[in-house]
Amino acid sequence: MKGALEKKKIKTIKVNLDKCIGCRACEIACSAFHANPKYSSVNPARSRIRMVIDLLNDEYVPIRAADYTKAECDGRHVYTINEKEYSECSFCGSVCPARDLFKEPDSGLPLKCDMCEDDPPQKEPLCVQVCRVDALTYEEKEEEVEEEVKLGQMEIGLESLVGKYGLQKIVDTVARMSNK
């Protein structure tokens, strides 16, 4: 099922690792913005952007909390950078049962970057605002994307049945049932 094309605003945070100085202001600003009441506390452990830092191995990587990890992810790739081995998970933004990153320290509930939605809107996400060295920059662009077609309840149910038994079997079953 295909939808019509429509224009949509895409919000992106671009990361330039070469410019990062490892100050962690992004973590501080993020945790302050998402505190309740707003700005009332700081705690990098609650931040939805996290610095993966190895000061001496020149590893300065801000990672943003993304979606819940996909079930089929096995994270088994291993990368070597500057003679140090990293797993696929090292720089992954997914909230994942396999690790503590991007979970509320108290409740364990997942944290996800919301681009600092605010009323009135922020000019850019807070981590970008405080990153004066421009390791993080904000970009909004209009893109033509397919309009998302919302499926009804029955369609969702049928789709999963189709996925499980195949279309032909469903059609046969429906035909048999309607003959009764």
Binding site: A32, A35, K38, Y39, P105
Partner: peptide
């Protein structure tokens, strides 16, 4: 290693002057 909150007394006003101070 610590993962607890540190609270501040007057959050919005403090954040405003801090955000300016980065610049």
């Amino acid at each position: 290693r610590g993962t607890k909150d540190i609270n501040v007394a007057r959050p919005a006003e403090l954040w405003e002057i801090c955000n300016r101070q980065y610049k």
